[in-house]
Each structure stands twice: as C-alpha cells, then as structure tokens.
Nucleic acid binder design. Structure first.
Lengths: 121, 121
DNA sequence: TACAAATCTTCGAAGATTTGAAGGTCTTAG
DNA sequence: CTAAGACCTTCAAATCTTCGAAGATTTGTA
C-alpha cells in the first residue's frame, strides 16, 4: 500500500480539481438574470436587443451577464450584421434548470404538507 | 385580450419568482467546499467531525458551510448524542452534480479537439 | 457539579460580485 | 465619409460572501 485510503488525488480539469470547476459552473448560474437568460434561450437563439427587452435591463447589464455566460462556455454567439445572436452551447444546461425546478417543486410541496400538519393541531 | 403577449406573470415560490429561487439554489451550490460536502454525502450520512476531517477544514468553516446547505433545504441533520449526522434531502441534488460533471467533461473534450485542430496546421 | 468533546454562532476584515453611468467599437445605410 | 443602431467595455460605489478567531452551546461522563 503506497497511500492512505482517504488520500485520493482529486481529478483535475484545466489545472483545477473537478469539484472547483463544478462549483464555478453553479456560481455562474447563480444569478437571477442569468437564469432568466437561459430560460429565454430554451427555444433557440435570440439577439442581445431582444433579450435586453425581455429582461427590462439596460445594454450594459445585459452585455455583462451575457459576457459572463459566454466567457465561461455556457453560451456562444454569432454576429449577423449589427446583431449578435446568443445560444446555449450544451443542451444539458437546460437539464440543470429542469432538475432545479423539480427539486424546488417538491421542497415547496413538503413545506405545504408541514404547514397542513401544524394546522391539524 | 387583457395583456400583451410578452407580459406573462412569473410563477412564484414563497413570494419569489421561480427563476430567483433557482438562481439561489445554484448560488448555494456555487462553492467548492459545498460541492465537496455533497459529494462526500453521496454514499449516505456522515458526522460533522468526519466531514471536517475529509475537508481539512476547521470546525467553524465546516459548520458554516453545512449551515448554509441546511438552512436552504439542501441538507438535513439528526443528532445522535454529541454527534450530528448530515445527509442530502433530495437525491435529485446528486443529479445536478452529475449533469454538471457531464457538461464539464464535454467542454473539456471540445477544447482538446480545438487544440488538436490548431496543432495540425 | 465540573469537564471534555462535538458542534454552532458571532463578528470583523478581506475579498468578490453587482450595478449604473459613461464612453468605446463595429457595421451598415445614406 | 458620416450618422445611427447594436453591442461591448471600463470604472468606481454599493453590496454580498468568505475566512478565521474567539467564544457559546449541547451532551455525555466522572
């Protein structure tokens, strides 16, 4: 035996242990505007102006959040004359949103049940 | 027609629109220590001291991160004499980690392919 | 009761993120 | 070439998060 059982070397991605990269992905998704952007992109690409309008944000805020998502590989964009179209790069990103919704849904159901329980006394 | 097409009222959970609650869940998961805690709990409950040892953290840091996860409904705990055992409340939480891993995996594969592409010139 | 072990809380400094304002770049139409 | 539209960047103030030290609680045991 050359190692203790608990001292497993963590797998790495681009020099960072995987759990850090995962955390970073979640942190990137951890902003309401960015979640909404992803939801708006569920049905396909959209221009910045279009998103900006739906989000009721200014140009700066919209660009900044899109930039965070693009630089971190969640979104990609293409330019068509003066418009820039954004889309989600990996469709599994939507799965994250979907699973999150499910978890939230049943958390809610549980609190409802708990409240009903309390009422009954 | 009583409303414009784009002005849909957002669904709400505990007074917050769903996209905010989703973002919050992701934000909670968006810290390397908290991701590791969840990974350590994949095979069942663990005591605080045990986690603390694996994370190589002090008691304060461990408690604080566990507290964040518990207060937000990701974890739950039970006490057995002086030990507190933590476990993940909803197994779908692991699905989030799993999907994140897949996304990260293929992002990595893509960059590898891109680099190979560049090499070939 | 007094003590030790395990866990939790509080607090302030340091660090990271968000926001909004201002201005910059790029592209096409005229 | 110039103007207008669409998008992006920079910057500093405000806000939020993390970290570590110190101490408080809780529980079982002598």
């Amino acid at each position: 035996m050359s190692r203790r059982a608990t001292a497993t070397e963590p797998r790495r991605v681009q020099g960072h242990p995987v759990y850090e990269v995962k955390a970073e992905l979640f942190r990137i998704l951890g902003h309401p505007v960015r979640v909404r952007i992803l939801e708006l992109l569920r049905d396909g690409e959209r221009t910045v102006g279009d998103l900006q309008h739906e989000l009721a944000l200014d140009s700066s805020g919209t660009s900044q959040h899109l930039g965070v998502l693009r630089r971190n590989g969640v979104l990609e964009s293409r330019r068509e004359s003066t418009n820039v179209y954004y889309r989600v790069r990996d469709p599994r990103t939507f799965q994250l949103l979907e699973v999150a919704r499910e978890i939230i849904g049943s958390n809610l159901a549980e609190s409802r049940d708990l409240l009903a329980e309390l009422d009954r006394r």
